[in-house]
Structures are given as structure tokens and as C-alpha cells.
Nucleic acid binder design. Structure first.
Lengths: 132, 132
DNA sequence: ATAAGGTCTCCAGTCACTGGAAGGTCAAGC
DNA sequence: GCTTGACCTTCCAGTGACTGGAGACCTTAT
């Protein structure tokens, strides 16, 4: 299976697949002509990685997840711990963005949005010692 | 005013302040010894940038905001448009993270987290064609 | 034979810093 | 005057996870 077929069936860009090989997430065979020759197992791994990435896991976490997946002696607790750490990080980011959202939203509401220069958004940026 | 004083009073790292000069956000004077010599205006600008950054504005947006701030003939509508675009982006990110959070949270709840290898998290990553 | 399209490698750029090396400057204490 | 230590300078490289592009090779169809 050539790389563009794999790209089509996993939804991952060709460049990304090559990159995943570069960093050692996959190791597809090579044909005589030097082309990568992907097995079903490679395909499966890439799909796995693609889904983990879509859940926001970082590359190193993907590597860990793949290792756990291939380890029949794993404890589900290890997987859960990894996922929970990631969830905590997501919650942290959501909270951070929510904070930004609230402040920004207030400022936008207060701004007339007309031809005049007076603007509470700029006033806040210029003066606010904190956004409490 | 030397750079470490500015760092102290703006809360920005020294490295970041130098970087902001590099990319042309500020242009502090230089003393005879080659040290940067920050004016109150530089300080004010850095504080402004720091607050815009803390609201999640990117560097180019900060540059635009600073330009609008210094333009007495600005229209508040321009500021509002910029802020609204950023708010939309934040909302998009929150929605994306929320989606991840929901999926991940379900999977974590379903995982026993014990010594056994069975794990719905890995099962989902390995098999799920989508996370609908 | 040629043209189109797929594949290869390698290099550079993204964003907003951050770390570190190597060296100049300054103020205090001896 | 000399040293010590804290400060300052520039420049280079690395971060995460790709992405774009150049230049060259391979394959398939006409």
C-alpha cells in the first residue's frame, strides 16, 4: 500500500505520515523502488494515532498509548492514569480559555463599535492592573 | 530603567522583552554601555502587550491593538472587530476542547483502572471509526 | 517519447518564546 | 587595583507537530 492510499484511508496528510515515521511512531517496509510499503498493521497504528491525536493527546502520549496497546500484560490503570492526566490538562485549558472568554466578552459588550475612538477594550488593556 | 526592572514591574521575562524588541513591538533607547534604557512609554507598551497576551491575543493582534491604541483617529468598531474575531476563535477552541473532554471523560469512566489489561480507552482508540 | 502524477529526501518556516554559551559592564568589598 | 558576583549583551539552537517547497526519481498512460 502506497502512502497516498494510507493518507486517504486514515485521513492523515501524507506529510504527517512521513513525519510519524521520522519520529519512530511507525516503521513501514520499503519496496524495491524505495517507496514506503504500508502493511495493515501500519494502517491500524496510524488510525490509532490519528484518533488519539484527535482527542488531543500529544505525540509522546500517543507513543505511550501505542506501547500500552501492544503490551498484553498492561494494567488498565496505567491507561486510565495517562488519560486522566490528559483530561486534567484539557480542563485546565478550558478554564483558562473560559476566563479569557468572560473578560473579553464583557469588554466587547461595553464597546460601542462605532466611528468614535473611545473604546473600553483599549482602555482596559492600557490600564487594568488585573482582570479580576 | 534596565531590563530586569522592567521585567519585575511588567511580570514579563527578560527574554520575552528582548524578543519583543527583536520583532519590533518596542524600540527602547540604548545607554552608552549598550544596555537597553526603557522609558515610561516602553513600560506602558509592554504592560499593554502583556495584558493583551494574557487575553490570548496573538503577537500580530497585539501589534494591531497597539497601533489602534496610538491612533487617535481610530474607530472603536475596528477594535471591536479585532476582539470579536479573537473571541470567536476562543469559542471555537473551547468547543473543540469540550468535545474532547466529553469523549475522554466517558472513556475514563468506563475504564476499570485496575491490574487487568481490558481497557475501553484503548479499545476505542483501536476501533472507533468516529467519536460520534 | 513524453507528460502527468506519485514518491523520495532534505531544508526551512511556523508561533512565541526559552535555554544556554560566550563575553562585556558595573558596584561593592578587600 | 583586584576580585567577585550580579547584571547586561549577542547569537544560536530547541520546543510541538507539523507544513511548504525544491529538486530528483519512479510509474503509468498515451
Amino acid at each position: 500500500m502506497n502512502i497516498s492510499d494510507v493518507a486517504r484511508s486514515t485521513g492523515l496528510p501524507v506529510k504527517t505520515i512521513r513525519y510519524y515515521e521520522d519520529i519512530g511512531l511507525i516503521a513501514p517496509a520499503r519496496s524495491d523502488n524505495g517507496y514506503r510499503d504500508f502493511s495493515d498493521s501500519d494502517l491500524h497504528k496510524l488510525a490509532f494515532i490519528g484518533r488519539a491525536r484527535s482527542l488531543g493527546f500529544g505525540i509522546e502520549a500517543c507513543r505511550d498509548l501505542l506501547r500500552l496497546y501492544n503490551d498484553q500484560t498492561r494494567a488498565s490503570a496505567d491507561v486510565k492514569r495517562l488519560a486522566q492526566a490528559h483530561l486534567d490538562e484539557i480542563d485546565r485549558k478550558i478554564a483558562e480559555l473560559g476566563q479569557m472568554r468572560d473578560t473579553l466578552s464583557h469588554l466587547i459588550d461595553a464597546c460601542a463599535g462605532n466611528d468614535r475612538p473611545d473604546c473600553p477594550i483599549l482602555a482596559d488593556l492600557a490600564a487594568a492592573p488585573d482582570h479580576a
